[in-house]
Design a protein around this nucleic acid. Structure first.
Lengths: 111, 111
DNA sequence: TTTAGTACTATGCAATACATGGTACTAAAA
DNA sequence: TTTTAGTACCATGTATTGCATAGTACTAAA
């Protein structure tokens, strides 16, 4: 139901600019979404295996080479669909949370 | 991360009025959230085991007795916290989706 | 007596997110 | 030179969540 929110965020990030894992974690953290390596790496592998992203290696002056992830055409399409799903979920939950209480509800002498 | 959206919806529904399983499925469906029995019953059991709801049996004229679920004080507290979490998640995802692209992003001659 | 409708329950599976630990490269400190 | 710290990628196991499937049990109508 609420499947793929993290996927949505990561696709959105790499759609804006190619990024490697630490980049992505930093950007998620800036939005107060705490994600750790153990979550992110398998997810990036999944996105690649599904053809939604590709990557290239780039050397770094301060450590091992970096895997820069880049979105593909199918990735852009998936991103668009995930955005729509997300908006629909927000609307659905909002309906539940704001729907009016029927008369008499909330009176629970036995609680 | 996005843990407990269904839990939020179900707590919100029973907080408004005591309900049994088919009631809840109907109300979720009205908000375009499709949930089946196999998902709902274990979740209702979990809520009860966590002390967030209690239930009472009521006889029915058309079938077996119904288990009416009712929210408890801890349940109301949990509902309030889940609502806050949900709002924060919406804000976080929105930040990711609307954050500005850095200069040069989107120019990918190798894609 | 059988069939249909309603409602609750049990079991197993797949996906998601996390914890944990490991590998490997660079550069600075001992 | 060797050790330590920092950066970055990867693998494995586990808990939770949600779903599929199948089964049980009660009532009422055919």
């Amino acid at each position: 139901m609420r499947k793929g929110v993290l996927e949505l965020c990561i696709l959105a990030i790499v759609a804006k600019q190619d990024a490697y894992a630490s980049d992505i974690i930093t950007k998620l953290k800036e939005a107060r979404l705490i994600v750790v390596e153990g979550t992110l790496y398998p997810l990036l592998t999944r996105l690649k295996n599904d053809g939604l992203t590709v990557y290239r290696w780039e050397e770094s002056k301060s450590g091992p080479p970096r895997k820069y992830h880049q979105i593909t055409e199918p990735g852009l399409k998936a991103l668009s669909e995930l955005k729509d799903d997300w908006q629909e979920l927000i609307i659905s939950v909002d309906k539940i949370l704001t729907s009016p209480s029927p008369p008499g509800a909330g009176f629970n002498p036995t609680l």
